[in-house]
Design a protein around this nucleic acid. Structure first.
Lengths: 195, 195
DNA sequence: TCAGACCCTGACCGATCGGTCAGAGAACAC
DNA sequence: GTGTTCTCTGACCGATCGGTCAGGGTCTGA
């Protein structure tokens, strides 16, 4: 009965992605995943230390790309930051549609888990970048609406080809983002958010 | 110890709204709510038939307004539908910020409950209206992004005055919505990527 | 005074959750 | 053969969930 370890491991991961995407992380039990794979719950816990570890491994690739995007944004401000954030996030959201569906709405509590501790800060920086680092409430609100809405849309429109979805979202973002005034009144107080 | 029934009833409702808003519907136990009120779990279930009934009563006002908006949309198409949908939904989302926070991300499963059976259809019609009843994927995607994003933003920005938030969101929607071609029977399809 | 309605509670129920553990069975090296 | 390692499992655990129930206070009207 024993399969190759990597095989079962992968099957569990795939089943978890499917179930999490439909019923959410908390709404999916280890028993559900085991049933879908065709093994026992104990087998799931043989391959993964616990439920959280399973989720962490599932999200690792997406988190890696998110971190890369965050790195690209360091030092950028204004329109340049907006453009990189828009392209980067749209691309990420489209590519990792399924992973985003997993987190759907459970962000607040999942972010408390140690494996996702810094995602909140990254997404805050992403929002600021998309707002062109503007302090105007309108810009910040628009940026949050777009980030949240894009996540939701990607999780919802699973049947649209990547390229079409990416193009539509990017066009939307470019229409919707509050244009930031160029470089002119840029204050000399280069206030880096780094403390 | 016995308080007036309406008093305890209201306290439970208020406590449930607070807890649901923070930890979500499924993430909040009846015990949590009872603890916040300062009564026993049995008391909560004396005032409300079950957990679902508690949620239903909490959401009733918002659902009523949503239904009214849906009525207003019947018969409208194109730009008129877009405008009514935009104003109506932004207003609703801002007014019922807390109720929206309750549903945050748990929509898919909560919609299965009989008390919320038709909300899915209403929100689908709302999305179509905001898209100007266009069939173009771009318009439909933009509409969904805006609806989902606005919900999320309202649940997040609890500290912004109603008027400011409403104005910012409305401005965003008007920028972001795909303009619908007037009444022309069919567009000249300049760059229609629709297949 | 007393019955009954109302408000509330502790104790309890079955179900399900994430997680543990001893051990069965197969594969392989010697 | 024997021993070891790897994979997998049933049985079990404590905790928590939503929900039930008998009954104890308290108030009120007859």
């Amino acid at each position: 009965m024993a399969r190759a370890v990597s095989e079962t491991h992968g099957e569990i991961l795939a089943a978890a992605a499917r179930r999490f995407g439909v019923t959410g992380y908390r709404g999916t039990s280890l028993q559900d995943i085991a049933r879908e794979v065709g093994c026992s719950k104990a087998t799931v816990l043989y391959h993964f230390a616990n439920k959280e570890a399973l989720l962490a491994e599932l999200m690792a690739p997406a988190i890696g790309v998110l971190r890369d995007l965050d790195d690209q944004l360091t030092g950028l401000t204004g329109a340049a930051a907006q453009e990189v954030a828009a392209q980067g996030f749209v691309d990420l959201a489209v590519r990792f549609r399924r992973e985003i569906a997993v987190l759907r709405g459970e962000f607040p509590e999942l972010l408390c888990q140690p494996a996702f501790a810094h995602i909140q800060q990254i997404s805050d920086r992403l929002r600021d970048a998309l707002a062109g680092n503007s302090d105007r409430p309108g810009a910040r609100i628009a940026a949050l609406v777009l980030l949240a809405g894009i996540s939701e849309a990607c999780a919802e429109f699973v049947d649209i080809p990547d390229d079409d979805l990416r193009a539509a979202l990017l066009a939307l973002v470019r229409r919707a983002v509050e244009p930031v005034e160029a470089q002119l009144p840029h204050p000399p107080t280069t206030e880096d958010k780094d403390s």
